[in-house]
Design a protein around this nucleic acid. Structure first.
Ligand code: MN
Ligand code: MN
Ligand code: MN
Ligand code: MN
Lengths: 218, 218
DNA sequence: ATTATCTTTTAGGCATACCAAAATTAATAA
DNA sequence: TTATTAATTTTGGTATGCCTAAAAGATAAT
């Protein structure tokens, strides 16, 4: 199997299984990768043979230890490159994902570690996603979505789970950028919307938006 | 055809044809790319259909204008990355070629131009090879090999045509690095060897070595 | 428990990009 | 010029990685 193919499957399985706690279905993979389900079945059989995943027919797939390690290395490369493009080359946070999708496949530890070092070994990427270190360990800050929070209080925005340009532009428009401090004033029971203040201004955000903002309590 | 496949063919044709002056034979390509000649024939037919090359059966191949432009863009990316890895990330000049072979396929003009800008738009890469600008134009300094020079006088080392690690290490050992000033004191008719001084020390270099050192008269 | 629906797998195909062996064509030497 | 050699092309493979359509299996609803 081509290394780039393997990497894209492992990365996607990883992203869909949130820390390898639940199995990933073929359909999830097919839709994420824009492949036909039949292609996914085939690929999973091969990845199972290669011992990167445990694929149980008609049930689901999870990463083995070695598959998870590979996935985390890819995630590290992806996020280091995104951070580098934004912080060192002046790209916007909404234009780096596509480039990183290519750069993440260049496998050279020294290169990634030098880039990381250059930036002071950052722990979050420009979208707020945590960057694993060279050993594959993540920063252990417990991050939650603003929707999960559902309580009055102060939070700091650490990232987003929706990385689409339209969403990022929306956040930017309202000053809801990474690092911003916000305060939740009221939680509307009817529709889950939140009244928050951010940089002195009051905004109402929908449950849908809230569920895509990653933050930590402050 | 896969874009990376096309790019590797075009780049290799470009490198073998020295400025598109002579046609490239299938055999040259096969041996450079480590492919079977039959595979090369097939690929050239396709590249011809795509109008990247003019392939004349049983005679040879040369790049079209659009093929040459693509090749030069790849060469630019390759050499910008090599320069970046050496100048900004502290890699040795003998370890960057392999990495650049991968990075050169990431096609994003903004990325390459930002990297180039960051370094002050360098005109030579760490091996002394010229870097075309964003429009595909090369610096026009006439560079020759020390063997072609064959005359007493002063020169500056601008690069090498043999990029192997063993050759680069040899040069390094004798201080024959890029940018070094050397002076040719005698040319030995018998075997073409040269007696030169470099950083106050006298060295005899063989014709073989001389023919792989690229320099310009000073 | 039976049916309807949704998911997964199987089966059969296709394009890409390579290969080895044989046939052809071109170049070189006798 | 004719043989010999060398380069190229043709032919008939293989492995990858995707596809569609049909069959089988699992899940949910009545
Ligand atoms: Mn990303
Ligand atoms: Mn990211
Ligand atoms: Mn190189
Ligand atoms: Mn170079």
């Amino acid at each position: 199997m081509r290394s780039e193919t393997i990497e894209n499957y492992l990365k996607t399985i990883y992203n869909l299984s949130s820390d390898n706690t639940r199995v990933v279905t073929n359909q999830q993979l097919a839709s994420k990768l824009n492949f036909n389900p039949a292609s996914v079945t085939e690929a999973l059989r091969k990845l199972h043979e290669l011992k990167y995943v445990v694929y149980e027919k008609s049930y689901g797939t999870r990463l083995t230890a070695s598959g998870a390690r590979m996935a985390i290395d890819i995630v590290r490369r992806h996020r280091i490159w995104e951070t580098y493009l934004v912080k060192e080359l002046g790209f916007g946070w909404d234009e780096v994902h596509e480039i990183a999708e290519e750069l993440e496949h260049v496998k050279n530890d020294k290169l990634i570690n030098k880039l990381a070092e250059l930036m002071g070994n950052p722990v979050y990427d420009p979208h707020g996603d945590p960057i694993p270190d060279a050993k594959g360990k993540f920063q252990k800050d417990k991050l939650i979505t603003l929707f999960e929070a559902r309580a009055k209080g102060s939070y700091r925005i650490m990232g987003t789970s929706d990385h689409s340009v339209v969403f990022l532009k929306y956040l930017e428009k309202h000053g809801l950028i990474i690092g911003a401090s916000i305060h939740v004033k009221t939680v509307e029971e009817v529709d889950g919307s939140l009244l928050i203040t951010c940089q002195k201004k009051e905004i109402v955000i929908s449950q849908k938006v809230a569920s895509n903002i990653i933050c930590k309590e402050t």
